[in-house]
């Protein structure tokens, strides 16, 4: 069996002031090439799990191993974020540059690409998502669905090896959802999706896991 892409060992995490921890001795594995859906009731820790993986939240105990490397310090996670892309639940959190092109190019520029190269990558990514002509649109004037797709473009532009999507379908119409399904099916990288939509998960992931306080069990 090959090495897992992500491994969480005995993770304990609780939000400050919360009575019960979200995770207690939580264990989780994501194997290469797997497409997993994360399901569970509101507040069970699905988003928290994604944020722990990205190093946005730090566990009180336990070990996180990503791509075979143990990560614990901010510096380790900086490297993780170059390879793992996270699509936020709320696209308004994700888009902050004035124009779409600048926002999509933001990641590649941070990766040290030259502006011309960053623009090329941004345009290619946008073409893949059928977002041609959006380059100079102002991000906060986009519609909800457009914001979501542009957010996805900003993440994909960093050419991640693994994608984490936090409720990618909220606010999308049926057509846009179909586009997203096809897009994910064509991706050749692993991904994990948090979603409450069974139909969407049915088309995009191989298996679904229930997130509990201690583990993540196949549903």
């Amino acid at each position: 069996m090959s090495e897992p892409l992500i491994e969480l060992q005995d993770i304990t995490f609780s939000y400050p002031g919360a009575a019960t921890p979200v995770f207690q001795d939580f264990n989780f594995q994501l194997l290469p090439g797997k497409h997993i859906g994360l399901i569970g009731p509101n507040g069970c820790g699905k988003t928290t799990l994604l944020h722990l993986i990205m190093g946005l939240l730090k566990p009180q105990a336990g070990k996180i191993v990503i791509f075979g490397q143990e990560v614990s310090k901010e510096k380790d996670f900086v490297a993780v974020r170059q390879k793992v892309g996270l699509l936020f639940q709320n696209p308004d959190d994700q888009l902050f540059c004035p124009t779409v092109l600048e926002d999509v190019a933001f990641g590649p520029l941070n990766q040290g690409k030259a502006p011309a190269e960053a623009i090329r990558i941004a345009r290619e990514t946008m073409a893949k998502l059928e977002l041609e002509g959006f380059e100079d649109r102002v991000t906060y004037k986009l519609s909800g669905g457009e914001k979501k797709l542009v957010s996805l473009a900003t993440v994909l532009a960093m050419q991640p090896q693994l994608l984490l999507l936090d409720e990618p379908t909220t606010g999308l119409d049926t057509d846009t959802k179909h586009r997203l399904v096809h897009l994910l099916q064509d991706l050749d990288i692993g991904y994990m999706i948090v979603s409450h939509e069974d139909a969407f998960l049915h088309h995009t992931v191989g298996e679904c896991c229930h997130v509990h306080g201690h583990c993540c069990q196949p549903a």
């Binding site: 944020h51 990205m54 190093g55 946005l56 900086v78 974020r81 170059q82 892309g85 996270l86 936020f88 959190d93 994700q94 902050f96 092109l101 600048e102 190019a105 933001f106 990641g107 520029l109 941070n110 990766q111 502006p115 960053a118 623009i119 900003t154 993440v155 960093m158």
Partner: peptide, 16 residues
């Protein structure tokens, strides 16, 4: 800020 960190932000903006 979190979303920016996820996209490799390290305190510097690059202008296109």
């Amino acid at each position: 800020y979190r979303a920016m960190l996820c996209r490799g932000f390290h305190g510097k903006f690059y202008s296109l």
